[in-house]
Simulated scan of single mutants.
Amino acid sequence: MTADTIELALEGAGAALAAESARFAAFGWMRGTSGNLSVVVSRDPLRLAVTASGHDKGELTPADVVLIDGQGAVVLGGRPSAEAALHARVAALTGAGAVVHVHTVASVAMGHRSPDGIVFRDLEMLKGIGQPAHDVEVTLPVIANSQDMTELGDRLEAAYNPQIPAVVVAGHGLYVWGETPRQARHHTEVVEWLLELELSGR
């Protein structure tokens, strides 16, 4: 990619991530400056636009993004989220075009309640992540948290379940992905709905 192409791609990615962040913040899923989002702008070499660190996610502008490489190192811009390297790892592992990380009460509570994984079945909302509504069990992985993104990435890769585009990080929050920012948003909303239902003790 040329410098001009990168700049245009980063600007477009920034606008998309600002809009998605505002939506999630309005739900109360990105309180304070928590959470982060990314979108792949190049696959070979792998480059992602990631929301910048320390910003209120309900007030992001298209400029509040950082371009990172496949290891999470900065290529262009300021300081990315501390979890930038995990976004890159998820994109490389799953082929996702966008990754969402939110801090929801339901994901933290259910991760504590079901540390070996959260099982869903016989729910119409499973169609929202590409699974049958009946007669299939889908397990959302739960992994232990770590401040070391390499270690956390290894845990995510070991627990990765192709049936569900998400993982709960215990005591931390929810990572979800999709082919596009819009699909990642839909997946996030569906998985969070499933978590809230389980938390309600249905």
Rank of each mutant, 00 (worst) to 15 (best):
A84V: 08
E83K: 11
V90Y: 12
V39M: 07
V66I: 06
S107W: 10
R47F: 01
V39A: 13
G95D: 04
G35V: 02
G97M: 04
V100D: 00
P115I: 15
T94F: 03
G77P: 01
L76W: 11
G111H: 07
A18T: 13
V108H: 03
L10Y: 05
T51Y: 00
G70T: 02
H101C: 06
K57V: 08
V75E: 12
L10N: 01
A15H: 07
A9P: 02
R43K: 09
V108W: 05
V50I: 14
L60H: 09
V40I: 13
V119E: 12
R79G: 11
H103Q: 11
V102A: 00
M125L: 15
H112Q: 15
S107R: 03
V119T: 15
V100W: 00
V75Q: 14
V99Y: 06
G97I: 06
V100E: 11
H87R: 07
A16T: 01
G111I: 07
G54W: 07
G78D: 13
A63P: 05
A52K: 10
S53C: 00
V39H: 03
L123T: 05
W29K: 12
A85T: 08
G117M: 13
R79E: 15
P45S: 07
S81F: 14
T94H: 04
L67M: 08
L93A: 04
H87P: 06
F27G: 12
E83I: 09
S34Q: 09
H55A: 08
E20G: 03
I118C: 04
R121M: 03
R31D: 06
A26N: 14
D44W: 14
F27I: 04
S53T: 06
A84G: 10
S81I: 13
V102Y: 03
K57D: 13
G54N: 05
V50G: 01
V100I: 13
S81V: 12
R31N: 00
E11Y: 11
F24K: 03
R43W: 03
G32E: 08
A106D: 08
D44M: 14
A73C: 10
V65T: 10
V119H: 13
S53Y: 00
A16V: 02
A18D: 01
P62W: 00
A98W: 04
A22E: 05
H87Y: 15
G117F: 11
V99N: 03
G14P: 00
T61G: 09
S107G: 06
D44I: 15
E59A: 13
R47N: 00
A13S: 01
G70E: 07
L17E: 06
I118G: 08
A106H: 09
A91Q: 01
L93P: 05
M125I: 15
A52N: 09
R47T: 07
V108F: 01
T51G: 06
D69R: 01
R31C: 00
L46T: 14
K57I: 05
A9R: 11
G72S: 12
L37E: 01
F120S: 07
N36V: 02
I68W: 05
L46S: 15
D116E: 15
G58K: 01
